[in-house]
Amino acid sequence: MSNDLFNLTRRSFGGLLGGAAGAAALGTLARPALAQSFPSRPVTLIVPFAPGGSTDLVARLVAAKMGDALGQQVIVDNRGGAGGNLGAGTVAKAAPDGYTILMGTVATHALNPALYKKISYNAETDFAPISLLVNVPNVLTVNPNFEAKTVKELIDLAKANPGKYSYASSGNGSPLHLSGELFKKLAGVDLVHIPYKGSGPALVDVIAGQVPIQFDNMPSSTEHIKAGRLRALGVTTAKRVPTFPDLPAIAETLPGYDTYSWNALFAPAGTPKEAIDRLHDAAVKAVADEAVKAKLSDFSAVVVGSGPDELATLVKTELAKWAPIVKDSGAQID
């Protein structure tokens, strides 16, 4: 081979190597750029319950701040129905691109798989966990004109009048329905369950006196309790909550009674990690915001802001916890 040909070949090969290195460098630079490009349009946050309930309240507080962090609006879309299955199923089948996410709850990811004979999604495999946002206590309330002023008085009244009194909840198989069923079992009383399509409609009838008793999430009942439109008898968590230190825990009368709800963000399974990371960071910033924390604290929601792995573990734990409770309650939905 001549020197000229050798030099030409060497230069060409070197150029190829340089081009390959440049392409690799561009690829390396492109990956962060791709991550930063999400989201390039608004994100839809599906709330699988009617407006007015605690899940809706938490979602709207968090969505606004997430939008600030993402640089794109996070739009809350209420898709109530089938105890949360409709909205959850919608997200499970959505494009896994991060633009459709779910405000999941203990109902969608722990209770419904045990309650429903047929369900359109798998709580573990059809979703990519983003973050557990808050834990939310529930509360037992009555209309202010109702005779019972304590948990013990309610139990005594119900025992003396089996089947006479009814309690409202946000729907068949909801955490609040099962809070009521657990109460009935431990107290040995017969109360009639009246299901509603969400906490909002149930609150209206309890305040109006159409139904005397309700199990509700603390967030949606807090202002009504403070205003005297409802009388709170007890919180459903094992211990009292800081925002209502004088309100007894039901467990003080019924040892072992402990139920609560939680709100968490999920994306469809297969959503790119870059999108999950961006959504997680925005969600954690949202619940860490002092104004958001103050509003959540007003109705006793406890901020968590977990990572995706912790949320995945929670779902497994909750599924195992609630399955026997649902079975013992006899609740089953076709």
Rank of each mutant, 00 (worst) to 15 (best):
M1Y: 10
S2G: 14
N3Q: 08
S12N: 06
F13T: 15
L17D: 03
G19A: 14
G22Q: 05
A24L: 15
T28I: 13
T28M: 14
P32T: 06
P32G: 07
A33F: 14
L34F: 15
S37N: 06
S37L: 04
F38I: 05
R41D: 09
I46L: 13
V47T: 15
A50P: 10
P51M: 11
T55Q: 09
T55N: 14
T55V: 11
V58T: 13
V62D: 06
A63T: 05
A64W: 01
A64C: 03
A64Y: 01
K65G: 01
M66P: 06
M66A: 12
D68A: 14
G71H: 07
Q72S: 13
I75A: 07
L86D: 10
L86S: 08
A95W: 02
A95N: 12
I101E: 06
A107Y: 12
H109L: 14
L115H: 09
I119A: 05
S120I: 13
S120R: 05
D126I: 13
P129Q: 06
S131I: 07
S131H: 09
L132E: 15
L133A: 04
N135L: 04
E147L: 15
A148K: 09
K149E: 14
K149Y: 10
T150S: 10
K152W: 01
E153R: 02
A160W: 02
P162D: 00
P162E: 01
P162I: 02
G163E: 03
A168Y: 07
S169P: 08
S170T: 08
S170I: 04
N172H: 07
G173L: 02
E181Y: 11
L182Q: 14
D190N: 06
L191Y: 04
H193W: 03
Y196V: 08
V204I: 12
G209V: 11
F215G: 00
H224E: 00
G228W: 07
R231N: 11
G234C: 04
V235T: 12
P242Y: 04
L247W: 02
P248G: 11
A249R: 10
T253R: 02
D258V: 03
S261G: 04
N263W: 00
A264P: 03
P268Q: 12
P268A: 15
G270L: 13
P272M: 11
P272G: 10
P272V: 09
A275R: 15
R278Q: 14
R278G: 08
L279C: 05
D281N: 15
A283N: 05
V284M: 09
A288Q: 15
E290W: 00
A294E: 14
D298V: 06
V304R: 11
G305S: 02
T313L: 09
K316T: 12
D334T: 09
